[in-house]
Design a protein around this nucleic acid. Structure first.
Lengths: 248, 248
DNA sequence: CATAAATCAATCATAATCATTCATAAATTA
DNA sequence: TAATTTATGAATGATTATGATTGATTTATG
């Protein structure tokens, strides 16, 4: 069996099951344990899945990250509502930071062309250029999969800028653990962005409330949360921080 | 059996199966291994399939469409020849700088995935990611139109890196004015890139020789010029600098 | 907490696959 | 026809993929 075929098979098995054990893959492929381990290494490097002890799990919601394309479909109407709502906070010729990600991407059609945007999401560039918006890009390591720019280099590059407002995505929000994201390198970026902005906005659809992921980058009370529907966790947070609900 | 016939057959075999082994094709064609390998090389260059170890896998539609639009560009065949020729200079696991632009973009399919690329061209990222190439992006002002990253900020960001080789585009080459490009900000980038590289390559189709534009960023003798055809200006320069002619 | 079981990364030798080169044959052009 | 280009197959040494083995690490359990 061809290496590339095995890789496809593994990903399709994962697409159904969300998690898979090493032994299952071995049964399906007649390949050795070593080979499958190497496959998982390779696929993880490409951001196609996440390795866990005993096997692998899909690079999708909650624990793990979704790829850009997968994200852009889930909760699209909700994200669109959040994005257009968020864009309304920007007044006049401000300079804003726009986080990499699918929700922030949806803000671009609602942006006034006279503003200046700084972003770590190269995938935003075509739309920003189309709208004639002055754009600065953060430099650094390009993360495979989500294609955000991250790393020590990116953080240093970021420090040169100060923002009137920042719009930042998040993977999990809980009362105890605050704002979390799976990748520490991405968390470092978000943390710095928040520190260098006068006004801070966290864009999070309702699925993000009550879940937590690996790395904390801030507390809900340091920012304005923009979401699409209220949840138990959101209700609890209402005493501490400002929550704006954008109805789709 | 005719070469073109074999190519058709290979593509039709792939149309059903998604992936195919080299041996399968050999069985179907009575051609030698070498010939089939050459066929796969050719077809991959045309974007009709992706080579994988042991055979080939079907190319996605988007890639096919992308190569279609690429082909409509000016001097496409010449640029492709220059690009694939240039890529051959890279040995092993080196770190290279890849300039923004259409000619350098054509190098990407010919790059070894084990190298590291630094670039000021965000438009290269999708293809670099697809090939699984480790990539660092220069940060700074995003130039509308060409979408290169330029400006003082970009130059400063650039200074952190040292390259084994750099591959740089150019707008004009003359004996008197050297290497020129219209935008001073872009020239600044190119100048610094050249200074920080052990080996320097200028990619220029024949139309660039004998024309000069606004800003000079270097002299031909500081780099190896890669072009597609000899011109009077190129002949004059041959005494001063190395010129490699890549025939389409 | 301690032990056993499972899972893991690292290494090795082997086999498969690969790019490159060369000489020859076919096709094309002068 | 002769010269030139192109296509081909075989041979080569290099690269990559693989499965088995090792001992270390992690997880489960009593």
């Amino acid at each position: 069996m061809l290496t590339a075929e095995r890789h496809q098979l593994i990903l399709s098995l994962l697409a159904d099951k969300q998690t898979i054990r090493l032994q299952e893959i071995i049964d399906h492929t007649n390949a050795s344990e070593s080979t499958i381990r190497r496959d998982l290494d390779t696929l993880e490097k490409k951001g196609k899945l996440n390795r866990v002890h005993g096997g692998a799990s899909a690079a999708t919601l909650t624990k793990e990250e979704a790829t850009m394309s997968e994200k852009s479909e889930k909760f699209h109407a909700e994200k669109e509502a959040i994005a257009s709502f968020a864009a309304r906070f920007i007044k006049g010729k401000e300079t804003i930071f726009l986080d990499a990600g699918s929700t922030t991407n949806l803000m671009i059609p609602h942006l006034d062309p006279s503003i200046t945007v700084v972003t770590n999401g190269p995938e935003h560039l075509p739309m920003l250029a189309e709208r004639g918006i002055t754009t600065y890009l953060i430099g650094g390591f390009v993360k495979p999969g989500t294609r955000a720019v991250i790393g020590a280099n990116a953080v240093e590059n970021l420090r040169q800028y100060r923002f009137d407002r920042c719009f930042v995505g998040v993977n999990g929000i809980t009362e105890e653990d605050g704002l979390t994201t799976p990748d520490p390198e991405e968390a470092a970026i978000k943390k710095n962005v928040l520190a260098q902005s006068l006004s801070r906005y966290i864009l999070a659809d309702h699925s993000k409330f009550g879940t937590r992921t690996f790395t904390k980058f801030g507390d809900p009370e340091d920012a304005i949360l923009i979401t699409d529907a209220s949840t138990p966790t959101a209700e609890k947070l209402k005493s501490k921080t400002e929550i704006e609900v954008a109805h789709p």
